[in-house]
Every structure is written in structure tokens, then in C-alpha cells.
């Protein structure tokens, strides 16, 4: 059934810190690497070494320029993958039941062997989270690395999505949004985590932490005074002597 579950026991998802992301695309590569050899059909590429290489990716990093009314413009790197929406429009449009949302953890998945490749779910998604694989012709999307997070064959520190595990800046966080004490819930509460396109009514689970205001560096400036206040030795004598003059 492609009806959505009324509630899910857990709400697994990602918090992406736009203040910390450096735009290195490591998450994109880690995602492609893991998902091309694990869950479902490999993520194929079209013409990978030719003039117009293209391929299916489950995570892509955009870059945006934001110009406030006053002050300088800033560049924000913006990784985007499936937001595992609570009211996922991609699930209900599916004619075959291939697209579904799990009631136990809220992950939105595609049963690739039942997918007819009609593309309607990709149309229904406002975020562009789904891409049709160019060689398998089935719909691919972020699985939240469902084959890592519960995988007891992996060391415990690897039981998180590949994008989170690889992020060198620590800009990606994985956890349960249904638990108010979880790392992700607390990050969202502390930093004012934002929903993408709330007006679309999809109730996305993933949240983005907005970049911190850049001009607050002035507030911190007094704290950045030299640490060594008590100069000793020759410099200390010089300091005291010059002070007395």
C-alpha cells in the first residue's frame, strides 16, 4: 500500500549545518560510493568519460549567494538529499506500491523490483530528491543508508549514513527527530533548524541549520585579546620600563 503511515515510531533523518558545510562534496562521493555497491541497483553513470558525463546521485551540493539588506553577501553551500517527509507526496502517487514510508523509522524507500519507472514520484517531490537511474530505469533515492545504520557487521561508529560518516567538517548529523533529547532535536532547538518549502505541506523530517550571522565576529573580538598578559624576561623588563616613561 502506498498510503502513508499515520505515525512512525521513530523519525530518522539528518540535520545539515549550513554554517559549517564547506562545500567539499565529500558527502556526494561517499553517498555514490556506498550506494553504488550496496542497496538496490548500482547508481549508474551515462557517458562517464565522454563529453557529457551524467549520472544518478542521491545527494547533491548546490551553492547559493545570500545578500542581506545591509552587509556583505555570503556564500552558502547547500547539500540536498531526500528529506524523508512525514507527508511524503512521492509515496501516495506511486501506482505500484514500490514507493513506501516505513512505519518503524519513517525512512522513505523504493522497492526497486516493483518500480515501473513512470517517474510520477519524482514529479511529486518538490525537492528533486529522486532520480531515475539511467541504465536500470528504476527510481533511486536516499535510503538514509538503511543498510548501514542497522548493520551489525559494521563497527559501531560506521552505523550511520555514509554522508554523515564522511563529512570532514562535521556539518551533517544523523538521529531520531521523534526523541526530543536526541542530538538532532537539540541541534534544531538550539540553532533554529529550518524546514525547506514548508508551504508545500510535505512536513520534511530533515532540518537545515542556518548560517550564523557573520558580523557577530565583532561581538567576540574582545575575547580575542592576546592571551599572555604577564610578559616576563627581557620583554617584561622592556614593557615595564616603557610603561614608566
Amino acid at each position: 500500500m502506498t498510503d502513508l503511515p499515520a505515525t512512525t515510531d521513530r523519525k530518522l533523518g539528518l540535520v545539515i549545518d549550513l554554517d559549517t558545510c564547506v562545500g567539499c562534496h565529500a558527502c556526494v562521493i561517499a553517498c555514490k560510493g556506498w550506494n553504488t555497491e550496496a542497496y538496490g541497483a548500482p547508481l549508474s553513470d551515462d557517458d562517464p568519460y565522454g563529453a557529457a558525463p551524467e549520472g544518478a546521485f542521491l545527494n547533491r551540493v548546490h551553492s547559493y549567494e545570500v545578500t542581506p539588506e545591509t552587509g556583505p553577501a555570503q556564500l552558502v553551500h547547500f547539500p540536498k538529499s531526500c528529506l524523508h517527509c512525514e507527508d511524503a507526496p512521492c509515496v501516495t502517487v506511486c501506482p505500484t506500491g514500490a514507493s513506501y514510508k516505513r512505519s518503524e523509522d519513517g525512512i522513505v524507500l523504493v522497492n526497486e523490483s516493483a518500480c515501473i519507472g513512470c517517474g510520477l514520484c519524482a514529479w511529486a517531490c518538490p525537492y528533486g530528491a529522486r532520480e531515475l537511474d539511467p541504465s536500470e530505469h528504476v527510481m533511486k533515492k536516499c535510503t538514509l543508508c538503511v543498510d548501514r545504520i542497522y548493520n551489525e557487521n559494521l563497527p559501531e561508529e560506521d552505523r550511520e549514513p555514509a554522508c554523515v560518516r564522511t563529512c570532514p567538517a562535521g556539518a551533517r548529523h544523523f538521529g531520531d527527530f521523534a526523541d526530543p533529547e536526541s542530538n538532532v532535536s537539540q541541534l534544531v532547538a538550539e540553532r533554529g533548524g529550518i524546514e525547506l518549502m514548508p508551504e508545500q505541506g510535505t512536513k520534511p523530517v530533515n532540518r537545515y541549520l542556518p548560517p550564523r550571522p557573520k558580523d557577530q565576529i565583532d561581538v567576540l573580538a574582545p575575547l580575542l585579546e592576546p592571551v599572555a598578559q604577564d610578559a616576563r624576561g627581557f620583554l617584561g623588563w622592556l614593557d615595564r620600563t616603557l610603561e614608566r616613561l
Partner: peptide, 12 residues
Amino acid sequence: TGLGAIGSVRAF
């Protein structure tokens, strides 16, 4: 992008 609260957003 959720960045509209900060200022005008342009795809860079």
C-alpha cells in the same frame, strides 16, 4: 533553501 530570512538568495 530556507535562506530567505537572511536576504535575497541567488543560485551561485
